[in-house]
Write a protein that binds this DNA or RNA. Structure first.
Lengths: 143, 143
DNA sequence: CTTGACCCTGGACTCGACACCAGGGTTTAG
DNA sequence: CTAAACCCTGGTGTCGAGTCCAGGGTCAAG
């Protein structure tokens, strides 16, 4: 066996965090939150992560990128264990999340329309009282 | 003058809050935050709001609906006072906010595309391992 | 051996925008 | 007059997802 640090292939928390692209504190936080199982320890008390912890951390990162909250991710992880009706539960979770995203997009589009109107109407010069933005906010013309 | 409660037309904090559709605590919070000027007090110490406080609260509510943060609203209020280059400052603030909203929409659209793909690919039955959602999160197929 | 980089725990802190509480005093409708 | 409804201050709690800190031990390179 070539130069492999201490024993089998296990990662220190620092290496694991770096490999996953998160902070060390984040890893410990995920462990506290039950997202990442507590790894075995060395004699010194140092955490020694098996390789699949990295896969799990990456799973979490990808799910986060899709906007899942940590408790939803915990649910996804739980559902990814073998059990009956597996795929349908997972699918439903994703659908709920999709609807939330769509609602948020719709809301932001309304906000965007309001802002666009204001920006377009504003001459960009003159006193604030002459600015339709201030006027609209003050008088409550439809936004 | 007909039945007008105590003296001139001034609002108690409760009436003001109700008229503006916010909570009493919110009004006090805005005062602490410098968004709403501290009103005069009655002998009892009760806040007695002039009518324009209501206009100001409504201004705040409308700006919030456009997604401005409270400190940005404070800035808008400051800018709405008469001063040189008024309209251009206001316009710039709105443009910055507009760009933020557009960036957020774009991000959410990417998230939506990823979720849609997963939901479409998932059969909704079978084991979790067979579910493309779990597979994608686990293996990191492009999302 | 030493030194600097790493790791441990437990807890406090951050951000934003409020909500809620206790323990008082005040106002007002009936 | 009285009771309900209101108001005051000052302080604490909430949410989510971490981040930071002190005051220690441990590991690895030179």
């Amino acid at each position: 066996m070539p130069t492999k640090s201490h024993s089998a292939e296990s990662l220190s928390i620092g290496r694991l965090a770096a490999a996953a692209g998160v902070g060390i504190d984040t890893v410990r936080y995920y462990e506290r939150s039950g997202l990442l199982p507590a790894p075995p320890r060395r004699a010194s008390g140092y955490r020694a992560y098996p390789a699949d912890s990295l896969a799990r951390l990456r799973f979490i990162r990808r799910a986060k990128a899709l906007g899942f909250a940590l408790d939803e991710i915990a649910e996804l992880l739980r559902l990814s264990q073998p059990h009956e009706r597996g795929a349908s539960d997972v699918r439903q979770l994703a659908q709920v999340r999709l609807q939330e995203v769509e609602a948020k997009i719709a809301e932001l589009q309304r906000v965007r329309a309001g802002l666009r109107q204001l920006v377009k109407a504003c001459p960009g010069r003159g006193s604030p009282q002459a600015c339709p933005i201030i006027a609209a906010l003050s008088d409550g013309a439809r936004t």
